[in-house]
Amino acid sequence: NLRWTSEAKTKLKNIPFFARSQAKARIEQLARQAEQDIVTPELVEQARLEFG
Rank of each mutant, 00 (worst) to 15 (best):
R48Y: 14
F51N: 05
E28L: 05
E42L: 06
T5P: 02
P16W: 06
L12C: 03
L43E: 01
P41C: 07
S6E: 14
L49G: 06
F51R: 05
S6H: 13
V44I: 06
L12E: 01
P16S: 04
E28N: 03
A19C: 15
T40W: 04
I27K: 00
I15V: 06
E45A: 08
E7G: 11
A23L: 15
V39C: 01
T5A: 05
Q33W: 10
Q33F: 08
Q46A: 09
Q22M: 13
A34V: 07
K24I: 15
F18N: 07
R32Q: 06
K11P: 00
E35M: 15
E7A: 12
A19Y: 15
I38A: 05
W4E: 00
R20E: 02
R32N: 05
T40Q: 03
V39Y: 00
P41T: 09
S6P: 13
L2M: 10
R20C: 06
S6Q: 14
F17L: 13
K9D: 05
K11R: 12
P16L: 03
F18Q: 07
W4R: 00
S21N: 10
A25I: 12
L30H: 03
A25N: 09
I15N: 02
R48P: 02
K11D: 05
E45N: 06
K9M: 14
P41V: 14
A31G: 02
F18G: 07
F18M: 09
S21V: 11
Q29R: 09
G52D: 11
A47T: 05
N14M: 14
V39L: 01
F17C: 12
A25V: 10
R26F: 13
L43A: 02
K9W: 15
V44K: 00
I15R: 01
T10W: 11
A23V: 15
Q33E: 14
L43T: 04
I27V: 10
P16A: 05
N14E: 15
D37L: 12
L49T: 08
F17E: 12
A8E: 00
A34L: 15
S6R: 14
N14W: 08
A34K: 13
G52M: 15
Q22G: 08
A25E: 10
A47P: 01
S21M: 12
L49C: 07
A23N: 02
Q29D: 08
A19N: 11
K24F: 09
F51W: 13
Q33S: 09
D37R: 10
I15S: 02
R48A: 13
Q33N: 10
L2N: 01
T10E: 15
Q22N: 08
E45P: 01
D37N: 12
K13G: 11
A19T: 08
A25S: 09
N14P: 01
R32H: 07
A19L: 15
